[in-house]
Structure formats: C-alpha cells, structure tokens
C-alpha cells in the first residue's frame, strides 16, 4: 500500500456494485484416475471430478471445446476436452508431456487438487451437421476432441441425427494410438466406419491399415458432396497434406472443419496472443472452416 493510499482513510462508498463473475477463476477438481495411453508414456489421460458438484453443471460443454487446466503455483495450459458431453460425473483430458505445466501434471497423483477453467472456445457445428454425413480425420494426440465428438454422435439419443459417420485415425505406431479399447469397439460396430492406420509397424498381427493419414484418407474416405462435412484435427503437417486430398474427394472449403492451435494464456479472448487476423483462436475458434482460415493470415 502506498503512502497515498494509507493517507486516504476516508470511507468511500462504491459508485456501483456489480458482482462480475470472474472468468479467470478455475473450478477446483480432484484427479480421480490417470491412465497411461501410449507406449512412450508421454500421453496420459486424466479423469477429473469436480470438488463442488454444482460446478459440473456450470461446466456444460460441447464436443470440440477446450479448457484451461490450472495448477496452482505452476500455471495453466489449454487442452481439448476428451470426454463427451454425454458422459456424466467426470471430465477427461489426454495430455502430452511437453512444457512446464504438462510435465508437472504428469508427475501428479490421483487425489491431488487442481483446477479446470472453461469450457472455452467454440465447438464443432453440431446443429449444422445434423442430417449430414460426417468424416472425421485425426492424427496423433489431437484425437481427443474427436473422441469426444464420436462418443457424442454415437450416443443412442444422437446417432439418428447424423447420416454416415466415417473415421480415419492414424498414429506413428500401434502403441501410440489413443483409446485403443474404444477404437476396437467402434471398429466392430456397423453404424460407424473406422479406418485405423499407423505410419509403420513390426507387429505381424496388425490387422488395420499401414500408411500416413492423407493417403489412407484418399483411399478409404467417402466422397464429399453437399451433404458431407469433414472434421480435421491433427498436427500441422497432417492438416497440410490432408487438405488437397479432401478437395480431390469433393469436399468444399466451407465443408472442411479444422481445429487450430495457437499459444494461449487467458483462453477468453482478453490477452491477445492467439490472434490471427481479426479472429482470436481461443474465443472465435479453435474451430474454423477451411474457407475462414483461407481468408486469414496463416499465423498458427
């Protein structure tokens, strides 16, 4: 407190009192479960339970949104929500160990307290996708919000809203595929057409595809038309090479839906760093159509 502040001891009545909800305050959560997802142990799925049951209602989200995982004393990190709105009682995030916060998180234990702030950003355009064919193309650990989307679409209450659902999902090797049990279960269903692929494998028992995501998409994905949309989420290089393939298959630029990543801090469009052109990836995105992305500087 400055001398000036201390000096002005007069009681001053506030001009107006408007309690503003603080969007920087995370909801406290407890780590309920940790699953190692990949053979290199760099990917773990964290299951969180809200400490205050009412917060789960406030955290109502859509598939495709993200949240800031918040660790007191360390910092925050924006991560796509891997659980699905139709799954109740918990939220899940799959986290790649890369920076300061994620490395710290990987060393945390079940029962530890941390925070989740969100849900943030926009989501895949579910209303627009109703009555349409949906192609999902994913690579590596970006499959998280795609898992959320698939669970959402396959939910008995929702499945009839969509026509054909096809998935192309690839990882470096079989051991790097996320959510293997679920992948195998989906593979067996007839209301979703799965194309699992790996870049390469030594496993003689591997019964799925071998090859990068773009060529597998070209061979296996359905043709695009006015009733078809493609959702693409993966590393920049995969997005770059998948784009011409989807064009060739007949998907319009405004039928190709991308989820972008950029460095973020606030997650609510205030801090300014994730801006590309007039859009803020955290608030106006992260989901954009390719047509929108083409009208904006490629600064992501």
């Amino acid at each position: 407190m400055s001398a000036a502040q201390a000096a002005s001891s007069v009681v001053k009545t506030p001009l107006r009192e408007e309690p503003v909800e603080n969007p920087y305050l995370p909801y406290p959560v407890r780590i309920d479960d940790i699953t190692v997802e990949s053979e290199d142990r760099n990917l773990k799925t964290f299951k969180f339970v809200f400490l205050n049951p009412d917060d789960e209602r406030k955290f109502a989200y859509n598939a495709g949104q993200f949240a800031e995982l918040s660790i007191a004393g360390v910092g925050e990190i924006p991560i796509g929500i891997a659980s699905s709105p139709v799954e109740k009682g918990f939220i899940k995030f799959t986290i790649n160990k890369a920076g300061v916060v994620t490395t710290h998180l990987h060393n945390m234990k079940v029962g530890d307290i941390m925070g989740v702030r969100g849900p943030l950003g926009n989501w895949y355009p579910w209303e627009m996708l109703e009555g349409k064919n949906v192609l999902i193309v994913g690579g590596g650990f970006a499959f998280t919000t795609l898992r959320s989307s698939i669970i959402y679409m396959l939910d008995p209450a929702n499945r009839k809203k969509f026509k054909n659902i096809s998935v192309v999902y690839g990882a470096r090797s079989p051991g790097m595929l996320l959510y293997k049990d679920e992948l195998i279960a989906w593979e067996k269903r007839d209301d979703i057409h799965m194309n699992i692929t790996v870049d390469s494998t030594n496993d003689p028992g591997w019964k799925y595809n071998v090859g990068f995501v773009p060529p597998i998409t070209e061979q296996k994905a359905p043709q695009g038309d006015a009733d078809s949309y493609a959702i693409v989420c993966g590393p920049p290089i995969m997005i770059k090479f998948t784009q011409p393939v989807l064009e060739k298959l007949g998907y319009d630029h405004d039928h190709i839906i991308l989820s972008l990543e950029n460095r973020m801090k606030c997650g609510i469009g205030m801090c300014g760093r994730c801006g590309i052109g007039r859009e803020l990836v955290c608030k106006d995105g992260p989901v954009f159509t390719l047509a929108q992305v083409n009208r904006t500087p490629k600064e992501y």
Partner: peptide, 22 residues
C-alpha cells in the same frame, strides 16, 4: 492461493482482494 496442505483450501485459487472504492 495456498500450497500448504494443512490449509483447508490448499491449491484452490481465490480472487485477490482489491480496493475498488471510487
């Protein structure tokens, strides 16, 4: 926030008190 596990609300951030008098 407090990182002391002896505190009830450890690891749970709270809005910092500020002077918003006129």
């Amino acid at each position: 926030y407090s990182l002391d596990e002896a505190d009830a609300d450890h690891h749970v951030p709270k809005e910092a008190p500020k002077d918003y008098s006129p």
